[in-house]
Write a protein that binds this DNA or RNA. Structure first.
Length: 466
RNA sequence: GGCCCCAUCGUCUAGAGGCCCAGGACACCACCCUCUCAAGGUGGAGACACGGGUUCGAACCCCGUUGGGGCUGCCA
């Protein structure tokens, strides 16, 4: 029996997804209980999209959750040589070929022939030289037979090799593709169990085929965890859903509650218990007991679990943890607040918007701004659209407000910022707006701007009906 | 479209042929406790998607249907 080695292999996309957190947790629990090793590997082969700070976000989130890794982080961007060697070996065996088809050409051919999407094998026997720019490398999949594995959570899964297209393993830029780097690293790191999301099921036969082609011997065991879905049963997505672990931390959730709740998604302990300590989870968790149907990430249930943990804190612990949470939130603008505050009470009044789930505008100030700014709703609408897309940093936010103001016929920044400030902080005075917005975060800022705009629109309609 | 996966209360789940006219938790409702609100207590409403088999017996096994989802990228 070889030793248990599992890995979490996130791609650095700018935030850490709760689904990734759940996958990490299950890997971590399995490693801990088996006395195995939990490896962190950053899959940053897509150079175009990756930024170094994104990897830091992953590490921060993992540490916050208390899911310490034993090895790594390894960065695939620094392991290019390994992938090139593997590619060379595949080429030597005649298992890959160069292809210069564009996606459009492939799609056009398929359409013309009435075939379903997917690569049609056009370049299979053209014996193209792989060196010129613009040529990617495809793996030649077998035309017959099947590829299967005994999934720890889903049982036996079988794919007809004929249904697996000749997938690409190297970009025309020479960079390896996910599947290649993934296989090479799993072998290099002696991963014994691949525990990942269900969305990777279709990659597994490719994984296995490559594994065999590269002569790596016994492949790892696979366990595909059920997806985390939203209320409409779709895979959680950044655009639609609140998925960033950081958002939950910012909203005041405790990491131990998050861990406990996440453990309950797709798995449950024996008996009617739901609240389990980390140690209990480690000893009781069973990978083979994980369910195979998707689970809805229910924030209401999360908040109940969180409340239980919060109440179980001693008074001292509660004080310490809440103080730290409060301070972390306003510390970055403390100097800006200090210039404006006359008493410590002012500090509170100027920063309360950071802590509140929702702000209620001070009524007199709401009326005043509404009276002075006829384009109130229009400004907010423009701001909303721009805030949804722009970089979340001060100068981009400033540009967004200036542009939204101009589009609504409001030419001065001073006038354009008023509705935004009121929407976001509930007041007409306070620390500089853009720094405040950065701290508040995109999601909450957007929610407040939308709420204020809707209120204004309602009031306008009520007014015109009179 | 093709391939693959999934299917117990609104939600997370227990259930591995008789213990189940289906248990727990969240949410919901009512009552109790109570200066408010929480918390707590008691009770209520609420599910085996459908149709065929197999079996003395099926939520559990098999087949089909329906529904949902994932993948289908020179993203991961």
């Amino acid at each position: 029996m070889r030793s248990v080695r599992v890995r979490m292999a996130p791609s650095p996309t700018g935030y850490f997804h709760v689904g990734s957190a759940r996958t990490s947790l299950f890997n971590w629990l399995f490693a801990r209980q088996q006395g195995g090793t939990f490896v962190l590997r950053i899959e940053d082969t897509d150079i175009a999209r990756n930024r170094p700070e994104h990897a830091e976000g992953i590490e921060r989130a993992l540490r916050w959750l208390g899911l310490e890794w034993d090895e790594g982080p390894y960065f695939q961007s620094q392991r290019g040589e390994l992938y090139r060697d593997a590619l060379d070996r595949l080429a030597a065996k005649g298992l890959v070929y160069a292809c210069d088809c564009t996606p459009e050409q492939v799609a056009a051919r398929n359409k013309a022939a009435g075939r379903p999407p997917g690569y049609d094998g056009y370049c299979r026997d053209r014996r193209l030289d792989p060196t010129p720019p613009g040529r990617l490398l495809r793996f030649r999949t077998p035309d017959e037979g099947t590829t299967s594995w005994d999934d720890i959570v889903r049982g036996k899964v079988v794919y007809d090799n004929a249904s697996i297209e000749d997938f690409s393993v190297r970009k025309s830029s020479g960079q390896p593709l996910f599947i290649l780097a993934n296989v090479v690293d799993d072998a290099a790191m002696a991963i014994s169990h691949v525990v990942r999301g269900e969305d990777h099921v279709p990659n597994t036969p490719k994984h296995l085929l490559l594994w065999e082609a590269l002569g790596y011997g016994e492949p790892p065991a696979f366990a595909h965890l059920p997806l985390l879905v939203n209320a409409s049963r779709q895979k959680l997505s950044k655009r639609r859903d609140k998925v960033a672990v950081e958002d939950y931390r910012d909203d005041g959730y405790l990491p131990e509650a998050m861990v406990n709740y996440l453990a309950l998604l797709g798995w449950s302990p024996k008996g009617d218990r739901e609240i389990l300590s980390r140690d209990d989870l480690v000893s009781e968790f069973r990978l083979e007991d994980v369910k195979s149907s998707p689970a809805f990430f229910d924030e209401r249930k999360l908040s109940d679990v969180n409340a239980i943990y919060l109440r179980s804190l001693t008074e001292t612990e509660l004080l310490e943890r809440s103080a730290r949470w409060l301070e972390e939130r306003w510390a970055p603008i403390a100097p800006l607040v200090q210039e404006r505050a006359r008493t410590l009470g002012d500090v509170y009044a100027m920063t309360d918007f950071l802590y509140l789930a929702d702000v209620q505008a001070v009524e007199a100030e709401w009326q005043k701004v509404r009276r002075q700014q006829p384009a109130f709703a229009a400004v907010l609408k423009g701001v909303e659209a721009r805030f949804a897309e722009c970089e979340w940093e001060t100068s981009a936010l400033r540009d967004a407000v200036v542009e939204a103001g101009a589009a609504a016929g409001v030419t001065s920044l001073a006038k354009a910022q008023a509705p935004v400030r009121l929407a976001v902080t509930g007041r007409t005075v306070g620390p500089p707006l853009f720094e405040s917005l950065v701290l508040l975060g995109r999601r909450r800022a957007l929610g407040r701007v939308a709420a204020a705009r809707e209120r204004a629109v309602r009031e306008d309609q009520a007014g015109s009906e009179r």
